[in-house]
């Protein structure tokens, strides 16, 4: 429940009951409106067309996408910080979030904390600027056949096509080349019983996936810089 400045919580509740006959009121809280930066956290599994069992911690795309629209639409929100700590998830939902981020005019900065694995990688590179913390990891690996795809001869081709979508997006929105990305994706000896590469902090910057190693301070100062640059451009 949002609090109106200068009014104790009970009074606000009483007031809303009196005025609207209910205690909960749908409104963007005053603090939200005055905060120039919003923070969106992408955690756990990115949930797509299928509701995952409650044991998974999930980021729901049907909620995140309208939030991104709201942020883009609201002139009081000057910038968006996307904090990632995700193990991957639904390809289409992940790419949908990434495409939304990419096409926003509001300045965006992503911060990979902990992990930005699998489909987390395109989301991280979709922001205007990306930051990774020194200990965070990103796993680049091929899309695997899961029990959700029926094993027909077309499957391999289909998987390949899905993989190309992810590769193309990452390559288009970061400094990494297709060759380097493919090489990392199919590298052997790096992961236990699997192909792929784990990039830790600095390594993600070195291969060109992420812009800078840093933390929340780095990400926010970059965002402020982008916002002020944008307002200068707007004046001209």
């Amino acid at each position: 429940m949002s609090e109106k400045p200068g009014l104790p919580q009970e009074e606000v509740t009483l007031q809303t009951i009196k005025e609207l006959g209910q205690a909960e009121v749908a409104q963007v809280s005053p603090e939200v409106e005055t905060q120039p930066f919003h923070c969106l956290t992408i955690i756990g599994q990115i949930e797509g067309h299928m509701v995952l069992p409650p044991r998974n911690k999930t980021t729901k795309y049907e909620h995140v996408i309208p939030q991104l629209v709201a942020i883009e639409q609201n002139p009081k929100i000057k910038g968006l910080l996307v904090v990632l700590n995700t193990v991957g998830g639904d390809i289409e939902a992940g790419l949908a979030i990434a495409e939304m981020l990419k096409t926003m005019s509001t300045p965006t900065v992503s911060l990979v904390l902990g992990g930005g694995h699998s489909i987390g990688a395109p989301i991280a590179v979709a922001a205007d600027y990306s930051v990774i913390s020194a200990t965070a990891t990103m796993t680049i690996h091929p899309i695997r056949l899961s029990g959700l795809v029926i094993g027909v001869p077309q499957t391999y081709e289909y998987l390949d096509k899905m993989q190309d979508r992810v590769i193309r997006f990452i390559v288009e929105h970061s400094r990494v080349s297709t060759e380097v990305l493919r090489d990392m994706m199919f590298r052997t000896g790096e992961l236990v019983r699997d192909v792929g590469t784990v990039l830790v902090g600095e390594e993600a910057v070195r291969v060109g996936l992420i812009n800078e190693v840093g933390g929340v301070g780095t990400a926010l100062s970059r965002l402020s810089q982008m916002v002020s640059q944008r307002s200068v451009e707007g004046v001209q």
Binding site: G88, I91, H117, S118, I119, V149, V166
Partner: peptide
């Protein structure tokens, strides 16, 4: 379709 590091 899932693309994740967590076993299915």
């Amino acid at each position: 379709m899932l693309y994740t590091v967590v076993p299915i």
